[in-house]
Design a protein around this nucleic acid. Sequence first.
DNA 1: GTACATTTAAAATGTACGTTCAAATCACGC
DNA 2: GCGTGATTTGAACGTACATTTTAAATGTAC
Lengths: 219, 219
Amino acid sequence: MESGQTTRAAETRRRLLEAAVEVFAEEGFRGATLQEIARRADANVASTAYHFGNKEGLYAAVFEYAEQRMAELRGPQEDDADATRAPEERLRQHVTAFLTRLLDPRRPAWFARLLAREMIEPTPALDRLVRRRMRANHEQLAAILRDLLGPDASEEDVRLCTLSVVAQCTFYRHSAPIVARLYPELTPAREIERIAGHVTRFSLAAVRGLRGPRKERGS
Amino acid sequence: MESGQTTRAAETRRRLLEAAVEVFAEEGFRGATLQEIARRADANVASTAYHFGNKEGLYAAVFEYAEQRMAELRGPQEDDADATRAPEERLRQHVTAFLTRLLDPRRPAWFARLLAREMIEPTPALDRLVRRRMRANHEQLAAILRDLLGPDASEEDVRLCTLSVVAQCTFYRHSAPIVARLYPELTPAREIERIAGHVTRFSLAAVRGLRGPRKERGS
DNA sequence: GTACATTTAAAATGTACGTTCAAATCACGC
DNA sequence: GCGTGATTTGAACGTACATTTTAAATGTAC
């Protein structure tokens, strides 16, 4: 068919996306320049316009591309399915996988940076990401916590506990600069196992304590 | 002395800072323009150069100003001191105050935005903030958790638990766009008390569970 | 009230960047 | 090899903006 042309064009497109992911992650939407992206991709500035219309179009494509690449990087062990095992074990596994995705230095850092920027100035790309990727993950974790909390727990409690677990995981990524300055000796990237162990123990203990009759302390 | 001039000059300076805090928070360092800042402050562009040297100088001054303003906004009930009360009660109070600072819609939102931007691209301003404001807060919270965990807990455990509490609080601010998209019905800004209650209960239960002989589950 | 220093206003300058465009190059069917 | 449409290229355009310059205004001291 048109394999020669198409693959060549698709190739520059891919190079542009590859370069753009990095530049957008490093510099943000405003800070990123098409010239820099084109330079890194060994392409002409005008090719960005040709392939993606304009800077915004490129960003949208970049976010989708990054999202896809991250999904590909997921190992099969992170998939759902094993509803047979004890919820305690499933929690540990979920937390470990989550933290690994966030902190493992072998994973590219750009996705977390893009996401962090979306937290400050959300774009339509975030809506899609939540709908298409995050929601399912949250549901999976919520199911584990529902099991742990027992049948008497309200959906409200399940939700809040789920968020507490997520919060502990994402913290070491989102607030890394603060953690690094408060505790220079703690290097999360190298201690994923230790942190995962703590988050799991902490959360399991919390859930066990919450499970029984709710203890209302204080006023 | 030179009061007429000085106060007038100081007044312009203050107006510039006030405007700059907002613009930097909204648009980020790169997105903010001196012209817009000057316009909002009813001042001339050149006045930014006169008072702060250049854009970077203005940013540094802005961050310090924001920091100071936030410190002023703290009620007296957020101070340390009451080491007499039960640590459970102190935790509840600390968490509530923390969440209020982060989420209360009556508080200006710009500080959190400036801070979020520092999480992506730290500047020297962050070092100062951590050293001069955050460290003490963390120590205060760590002390509460040390009390709760009892004398057998390692400093490592205290640290991790402290971070778990902080993580749960900051999450509702840092990841607000995600929470809003996952659970549109949850409106953290209006439910500070409920969230504070959950974080406190969750963390107290966790700490109580961790306090005894460490239960190692799983492998 | 006149000379000097400080502060503000307005315009000018230079640069960086997104976008556009016409020409050049390429891949392919004929 | 030649025409056709898809890509790629290099240059140019216009705009936005940080910074600088210049001039006026304002305050201070004699």
